[in-house]
Amino acid sequence: MTPSNKSKMSLNKDNQLAAMLKKIVMPLLLLALIVLFSFTSRGTFFTWYNFKNMLSQSSYVIIAAVGLTSIMLAGGIDLSIGYQMSLTGVSCGMLMIKSGLPPTAAIPITLLIGILLGLVNGIVCVKLGVFPLIVTLSSSMVFQGISYMISGSKTYLGFSKEFLFIGQGFIGPIPFNIFISAAVVVIMAFVLQKTYFGRYVYAIGGNEEAAKLSGINTDKIKIILYTFCGFCSALASIVLISRSGAAAATIGPGTEFTALSGAILGGVTLAGGEGSVVTMVVGAFIITILGNGMQLMRLGTFPQYIAKGVVLIAAMAFDSYQKKRKEVKKKDAAA
């Protein structure tokens, strides 16, 4: 009746395997997608040109997602990043085209505006104690309104060469904006993993009450995170409008969902305290590759939406299946 040592061992191994599987399943999915599209795209997918293109395309999303992920790790959320991008992008375009400021002046001002928008979000969330989801959904509408009003729904074109370099230029064979997103990822990964600030972020996401009683100024940290997220949105927006060569109120919105999908696929939970900026990048790549590969298979935008939605649900289903599996260990495994 008592299980032999052997079966106990196999059960252990089984569990270790499951834990490992959880860690590598997303990188594996990424790899599988690459292999799949390499075969289905008739040689157009697995090329240096296409990869360069994908990385460059997704770099603004990754920059925005770093800000969002940082907030999510502390158990918050910011759904307004799309319209933060819209508003900062429009501001940046107007500063350069309408006011004739050089990029060296317009860019810092734009970043400052982003910081301000994030700061407002943070202060409202913390001081009023309203759910961040509601706060940022509302502020998103406010930003949208301002963005359309100040831009008069116009599109601003004709940026200087220097400014266009940010989104379209190259250093050697590599698009310049990849360096920007890589820098943001590396710096934030370091901050979150290696500094006390990072510990505080995870602590708040892990258990906010315990974090407070551990002497952490949770309000301050949260405000800093929302502010940082605003900065990231502004930076992402600069990269995006430089890449597309145009600034308008319609450019930016929608990024919040791509970024959120990437973060969740990367194992960043809505509850907080789990995942990292690096795993988020893996998730963001999955979304990008899925879109790109399907495009090359001549599957249009709508099938892509469906595929992305399904993958997201599947990822969350897999996660909760893993958690349940730990509880209900099959009896016959040991019998």
Binding site: R199, G206, E209, G273, E274
Partner: peptide, 22 residues
Amino acid sequence: HQGLFLNFSILWNTSIVNIKNL
């Protein structure tokens, strides 16, 4: 609910209050 960060290690929990000094 008030003392521990259950999903983190003993090491992590032990140092969280004192982390700035480390």
